[in-house]
């Protein structure tokens, strides 16, 4: 029961965090057709910036400041890199962002070294929110979850209740039409790219302090975020939310499950045989937790290629 509750909480909060990163990615993809490989790098830059800034301006301001700075970085990437190669097509854009991932990761290594940095939760946030079965549950996790929910709410309101949101949604579905109606679509693209990047930066600034901040975090999270957007359906905000929670929960539960295929066969009375087979049979779910999201993604692509909430393509 304890395992269930804690895993549930952790899973949901991890999922919400994933959403903060994948929201921007899926928004950018839906709008511009660009799958931004460098998106998780924005997450990493957010973490490192906040780590650096907090020494000078304190944690809260550092988080806010790095969010804005990463947003600006996103604007620069869109304006001066992506827009230049737009004419060569989406594959080219994907490759360019792929290259940027490399550069960002290497620059981080250059400045901060190829190891994790001491980015910690500040003292004033490091306390227990409540107790679950006699263990303290950190307040900081709740904070991360809360911020993600807030972000979700804000994006939702922005997209559905404001004029800007209407233009953005129009630009997603019919860029030429929106342009013909006199809206500055390139500007909208740039803004959306910037906001998406800023969200990833915010997530990084927050999560970096809780998890680890190292030069590999972009790649590790990046792959998972891709899984999230593909499972959710590229371009779908609601899909990204559902898939984020799903993957968050799966990851959090899987690490605690000590079952294997052999245990399944055990139920059928063939447990010993399966144990002897070894290999895949005796792999514990917990030890292959990292593979489950990928397996899920392949499964989704097989049975519902456009993702959970994606339009039929």
């Amino acid at each position: 029961m304890e395992f269930l509750t804690v895993s549930l909480l952790n899973g949901v909060i991890y999922g919400l965090l994933l959403f903060m990163v994948s929201a921007g990615l899926t928004l950018i993809f839906g709008m511009m057709g660009v799958l931004n490989f460098a998106h998780a790098s924005f997450y990493m830059v957010g973490a490192y910036l906040a780590y650096t800034l907090q020494k000078f301006v304190g944690f809260t301001s550092a988080v806010l400041l790095s969010t804005v700075l990463v947003g600006l970085l996103g604007v620069i990437v869109e304006r001066f890199f992506l827009r230049r190669v737009h004419k060569h097509g989406h594959a080219h854009e994907l490759l360019l962002t792929f290259g940027l991932t490399f550069i960002i990761a290497e620059l981080i290594k250059l400045f901060y070294g190829n190891f994790s940095v001491e980015y910690r939760i500040p003292e004033f946030l490091n306390f227990a929110a409540f107790q679950v079965f006699n263990t303290d549950y950190p307040f900081y996790r709740l904070l991360m979850g809360g911020v993600s929910l807030l972000v979700f709410g804000l994006i939702y309101l922005l997209l559905t209740r404001t004029r800007v949101g209407i233009v953005v949604r129009a630009a997603i579905h019919r860029p030429q039409m929106a342009e013909a109606l006199g809206h500055n679509v390139p500007l909208v693209f740039m803004a959306v790219f910037g906001i998406g990047a800023a969200l990833a930066g915010l997530a990084g600034a927050l999560a970096g302090a809780f998890y680890t901040t190292n030069p590999n975090m972009a790649l590790e999270l990046g792959v998972i975020v891709f899984v999230v957007v593909v499972v959710g359906g590229l371009g779908s905000m609601a899909g990204a939310m559902i898939a984020s929670l799903l993957i968050g929960l799966i990851s959090s539960f899987a690490v605690g499950v000590d079952l294997s295929l052999a245990s399944l066969f055990g139920l059928l009375g063939a447990g010993d045989w399966a144990q002897q087979m070894g290999g895949l049979m005796t792999l514990k779910v917990s030890s292959v937790a990292a593979t489950i999201p990928f397996a899920l993604m392949l499964l989704i692509l097989l049975i519902r290629p456009s993702g959970l909430m994606g339009e039929k393509g």
């Binding site: 799958l35 989406h90 594959a91 891709f226 593909v230 993604m297 392949l298």
Partner: peptide, 11 residues
């Protein structure tokens, strides 16, 4: 397209 790239990455 992009989906192909993602699948190869996931595999």
């Amino acid at each position: 397209g992009v989906y192909f790239s993602m699948i190869t990455l996931a595999l």
